[in-house]
Design a protein around this nucleic acid. Structure first.
Lengths: 128, 128, 128, 128
DNA sequence: GTGGTCTAGACCACT
DNA sequence: GTGGTCTAGACCACC
C-alpha cells in the first residue's frame, strides 16, 4: 500500500496515516495478517518524524485495527471494531453539522453544496 | 437566540460559538442590525471566560458576519462578500475534506452520505 | 528579520508585529517558506507575553500571509489572493481615510502629502 | 456649521467631531468667538450620547481650539496650538508608515496607491 | 520543542 | 456598561 501525507493541510499527519490505513484495511487492500511498513521505514519514506508514525500505529493498535508483535513488526489484526448504529449516526450528524455551519457563510446554495459533495464522492470512487 | 456549548467535546468552545452564530445569521434567525448578547453577558451565561467569547466575536467580525461598535455592542453586519472566489472555494473544499475524512470510517455509502446531506439541507430550507 | 515594538505608543503591540511582518514579506525580506521566530522565542526577545505574539501570527495566518504548521512552526505562505476585490478596496480606503484624517491636522498641503507618499514608495522600491 | 458622524466606521465618534471642528476652525468657517452648538443640542442632532460630544469639546478646550464659558456655552478661542515642525514631521511619517504597512498586503501597486491618494485628496478639495 | 486554547484578572478606550 | 488589549500561567495537541 502507498501512504501519502500533505504537510500544508489542516489535518494532522498522524490522522492522515490513520485514515489511510483504516480505509486500506476496510477496503480489503490490506488483508488480515499483512505486515505494515516499519515505523522508521515509513517515517523515512514520508520524511516525517518517526514519533508521528508511532503515534498513528499506536492508536490503530489501541482500537484493534492493527496488532503489534514485539520484535517482528506491526500487522493487520483479525478483529474489527464496529461502532453501534446509534454511535455511528451520532458521529455522522455531528460531523455534518460542523461542515454545514462552516460553509453556511461562504455563499454556496444548497444545490451547489450537494453537487460538490457528489462530485467529490465520485472522484473518490474513481480513485479506489 | 440561544447559544450552547459543550466543554467536554474536542471542538474548541470559541468555534462552537462561531458555528452557532453563523448558522443563526445565515438562517435569518438573527436579522441584519440585530444586537448580540454582550461579550461579558454571554460569557456569564455560558460560564466561560469573557476572552473566549471575545475571540469568537472577533473572528466573526473579521469574516464580515458581525460588526463591532466600540462601546455600544456587537451587531449583525450587512451581508457582503469578504473573500475571493478562490478563497471561498479553498475553504469549502477544506471543510468538505475534513467532513468526508471524519465520516469515512463510519461505513456510510456514497449514496447514504448524499441523502443525509440533502435531507439536512432541506430541513434548513424549511426553517428559514 | 528584526522586529521591534514600542510599548508606550497607542498602536497595539500585536498590530506593530503584524505591520512589520507584512512589510518584511511584501518587501521580499522574508521569502516564501521561510520560518518565523517561534511564538515563545519572539515573545521572550520582545519581553512581552507569548499570547500577544500568537495573536499577531494568527491574524497573519488568517489573512494568508503566513502558514502555521502545528508542532513545527510558522512559515511565510505562498502568495495568494484571500480577499475579494470589493473587500480589498474597502480595506484600502478605510486605511487611507484613517491616514488622511490623522494628518489633516498637521497642515500639510495636498501636494506635500502626495510628494511624501511618492517619496516613501520609491524608497521601498529601492529596498526590494 | 454642519457636523456629520458615521457610526459604522472604525473612527471613534468623538474623534470625528474633533476632526471636523478643527478643520472648520482652521478653514475659517468658524470665526474666533463664534458659538458652537450646545453639547445636548449636538448630541440630539447626531443621535449620540451627550457624553461623547462633551468628550470631544473637552479635548478641543484642552488643546486651546475652543473656550468654554461657564453657563453661556462653548466658543472658538483666540489662541491656536501649533506643533513644532519636527513634531509635525514625526507624526506625519508615523501615520504614513502605518498606512503603507496596512495596504502593503492588499496587492496595490505603488502607482495605484499614489493614484488613489491623489483622487481622494482631490475629492476633498472639491468638497471644501 | 512547536502552536492552540482557555482562564483569571487587569487596564484602557469608547458611548 | 460596552468592546479591545495585555499579562501570567495552565493544559492540550502535534511533531
Amino acid at each position: 500500500m502507498q501512504i501519502k501525507v500533505s504537510l500544508g493541510g489542516n489535518r494532522p499527519i498522524y490522522k492522515q496515516i490513520i485514515d489511510q490505513v483504516r480505509q486500506a484495511v476496510s477496503a480489503g487492500e490490506l488483508e488480515v495478517g499483512a505486515a505494515l511498513p516499519s515505523v522508521r521505514q515509513l517515517a523515512e519514506e514520508l520524511v516525517i518524524n518517526h514519533n508521528t508514525v508511532a503515534k498513528a500505529y499506536a492508536e490503530l493498535v489501541r482500537e484493534g485495527t492493527l496488532e503489534s508483535q514485539h520484535g517482528r513488526g506491526v500487522f493487520v489484526a483479525k478483529r474489527r471494531i464496529v461502532f453501534s448504529a446509534a454511535e455511528r449516526k451520532r458521529r455522522f450528524h455531528s460531523a455534518l453539522d460542523v461542515f454545514l455551519a462552516d460553509v453556511s457563510v461562504l455563499g454556496y446554495s444548497a444545490e451547489q453544496i450537494q453537487a460538490e459533495v457528489a462530485a467529490k464522492l465520485e472522484s473518490f470512487a474513481a480513485t479506489e
